[in-house]
Amino acid sequence: MVKKLFIVAGDPSGDLHGANLVTALREISSQIEINGLGGERMERAGVRLLYRLTELAIVGFSEAINNILALRQIYIKTEEFLRKEKPDIIVLIDYPGFNLRLAGLAKRLKIPLIYYIGPQIWAWRRGRIKGIAELVNKMLVIFPFEEETYKRAGVDVSFVGHPLLDTIQPTKSKEEVCRKYGLDSNSPIIGLMPGSRKQEIERLLSVMLEASRRIAENRKVQFVLPLAGNIPMNYIKERITEFEKNRLNRTKISKSQKEKKPPLPILVVRDEDYNIRRTLTLALVASGTATLENACLGIPMIIIYKVSLFSYLLARLLIRIPRIGLANIVAGKRVVPEFIQQKARAKEIAKVACHWLSNPGLMRETRKELKRVKEKLGTPGASKRAAKIILEEAIASN
């Protein structure tokens, strides 16, 4: 009998993990029909999407307000679909602001629900765990410290490991990649990673570009911007051109002097297979999943986080952990520096970057710490383990 699944992911990282999950599900069984909400990767993996929810991917509380009406319409259409089709099981991936509402709907419709990559209740709004325990049939977590937290609340929970360990599999050596893109493998390569959402990029890219220019004034380095899959390349290149134009307009120098200060050379390249990323000596990176990806690749990094003032002040009231970068959170200590909100200044970021580049011993020690972070994420095969549990629950639902 064909089993009907409904899978929901709301941001680019969730879309990636959702696609890998769907691939694993189809490897186990061909007798499944999968609908859902997600993004391009899930669609390519074979999910029939009601809506590309990832196109509304947002960061921060005030930023979310702008999309309330759109999310409301998606919720209404999703409710109509679920009432009509009654899937055997619903799988939610992260994205708690929207997905917890869907969890309540699933409960009312008596549709079994599995939450894969659950809300980060260990970071903020811990009180949500009681409500979550009442809504989910099974929780699949990706960090080892999450399992005990959910168990104490009476949630049926399993630690499946982190799916990034299945995803991060570069296929080429650093030397091969450098030859392909004309990079010098013996000279430091700095990665600029301003995020996978346009809101993040608008806030962080200019800071990273200004920091890069300051670094280049003190060190012989190369710059690469590994482009997130959902961001158009022209958009990034336009932002870089706009930064350079504004910089020159702010600088009171003659036309001849401006011609002697050409734009900072930055290689912008799409990097869905992590090959370009593995060439990096150091990364300036937006807080988020990318910090964990860098940890798995052993890339020392400087984490940068900026949102609207309202979102930041609200986050300070709600978030109860001392660190914001996932690499540092998993490590349980500050392994790499974090520049948050008003402290995210180009001058200070460049100063720290130059210090690291001048200290090979510090870089080696940081790589060792990042290797320990990777080891804490479990073993490869998270997507397959999660898929097996989901199919078992779907079969048992009848």
Rank of each mutant, 00 (worst) to 15 (best):
L284C: 05
I168R: 02
A133G: 12
T291F: 01
S256E: 14
Q73P: 00
G191P: 03
I389R: 08
I90W: 02
P87E: 09
K258D: 08
V269G: 04
M233T: 12
R364V: 02
R247Y: 13
R320M: 11
G131D: 03
K107A: 14
E85W: 10
D184T: 06
S196W: 11
I7Y: 14
R320G: 11
D273Q: 04
M139T: 08
V335Y: 13
P262I: 10
R278I: 13
I74M: 04
I276P: 00
E293M: 04
A394H: 07
V91W: 02
I324E: 10
G298E: 03
L314A: 11
K384V: 09
W122V: 11
R320N: 13
L391Y: 06
A382Y: 03
E392M: 12
Q257G: 13
T289D: 03
G378L: 10
G60A: 05
F98K: 07
R179G: 06
L318V: 15
F61Y: 10
E134G: 01
P265T: 02
V22G: 08
S196T: 08
A19T: 15
A103F: 04
L292K: 02
G38F: 15
A283L: 02
R334V: 00
G332D: 11
S173N: 01
I34E: 10
A57D: 14
E293R: 02
R48L: 07
K172C: 02
P119E: 00
D156F: 07
G298K: 02
R385F: 08
P12D: 13
R364E: 02
G118C: 15
R214T: 01
E79W: 05
K376A: 09
D156Q: 09
A295G: 04
G38W: 15
F6C: 11
R364D: 06
N246V: 15
A315W: 11
I74F: 01
R197D: 11
V336M: 12
S256R: 13
I349H: 08
M208S: 05
Y51F: 13
D166S: 07
L280G: 01
L37M: 06
